[in-house]
Measured scan of single mutants.
Amino acid sequence: AEKTGIVNVSSSLNVREGASTSSKVIGSLSGNTKVTIVGEEGAFYKIEYKGSHGYVAKEYIKDIKDE
């Protein structure tokens, strides 16, 4: 049951290796980017990222929809 969301930041949002603010940053997404959410862990969504997965803070994702 995948969902999509939109990155809701003015600059960019860090994509992390794990569901923690201390996890390594593996990339970033600019505002209004559409993401595919494959799961959630605590305050983070697990998303599809560059052929693999990454984690982003839930508070910066809006317009969550079921695909």
Rank of each mutant, 00 (worst) to 15 (best):
A57L: 13
H53M: 08
H53K: 08
V56K: 00
E67W: 02
S11M: 15
D63A: 07
S30G: 14
E59T: 13
S28E: 15
S11V: 13
I37Y: 01
I37D: 00
Y45W: 07
T33F: 05
I6T: 15
I26Q: 03
I26R: 03
T36Q: 15
S22F: 12
G39H: 04
I64Y: 15
G31L: 08
I26G: 01
Y45N: 01
D66E: 11
E67L: 12
L29Y: 02
E40V: 06
A19N: 04
D66H: 11
N32P: 05
E17S: 14
G27R: 02
I64E: 12
Y45H: 03
A57F: 14
A57P: 14
S11D: 12
I37E: 00
S30D: 15
G5N: 03
R16G: 04
N32L: 12
G27W: 06
A43D: 11
K34N: 10
Y45Q: 01
S23P: 01
K62H: 09
T36D: 07
T33V: 14
A1M: 09
T36C: 04
V38H: 06
E40Q: 11
L13R: 02
G42V: 04
L13S: 03
S28G: 07
T4A: 05
S20I: 08
L13F: 02
G51N: 15
S30L: 15
Y49F: 11
V35P: 01
N8R: 06
I64S: 11
V7Q: 02
E40A: 10
E48T: 14
K46C: 06
K58M: 12
K3G: 06
V56D: 00
A43F: 11
A1G: 08
G42W: 05
E40K: 04
S12T: 13
V7R: 01
K58Q: 09
G5F: 06
S11F: 13
S52F: 12
T4W: 11
N14H: 08
K50M: 06
Y60E: 04
E48S: 14
T36L: 14
E17D: 12
G42Y: 09
K34C: 05
R16A: 06
A57T: 07
K62E: 14
F44Y: 15
S30P: 10
K3A: 09
I61D: 01
G54F: 03
Y45G: 00
E41G: 04
F44T: 02
S23I: 02
S23W: 04
I47N: 00
K62P: 02
S12N: 11
Y55C: 00
G54K: 03
N14M: 07
Y45D: 01
D63Q: 07
V9R: 03
T21F: 13
K46A: 07
A19T: 08
G51Q: 09
Y55A: 01
S23T: 12
V38L: 13
L29G: 00
V56S: 01
A43K: 15
G27C: 03
K34T: 06
T21G: 15
T33I: 15
I64V: 14
I61C: 02
G31R: 11
I64T: 10
S10D: 08
G5C: 03
S28M: 14
N14L: 08
K50R: 10
R16N: 07
T21Q: 10
S10F: 07
N32V: 05
S10W: 08
V9M: 09
S12A: 09
H53Q: 11
S11N: 13
Y45E: 00
T21K: 11
S22V: 14
Y45M: 03
T33M: 09
V15M: 02
E59V: 09
K50I: 12
S11Q: 10
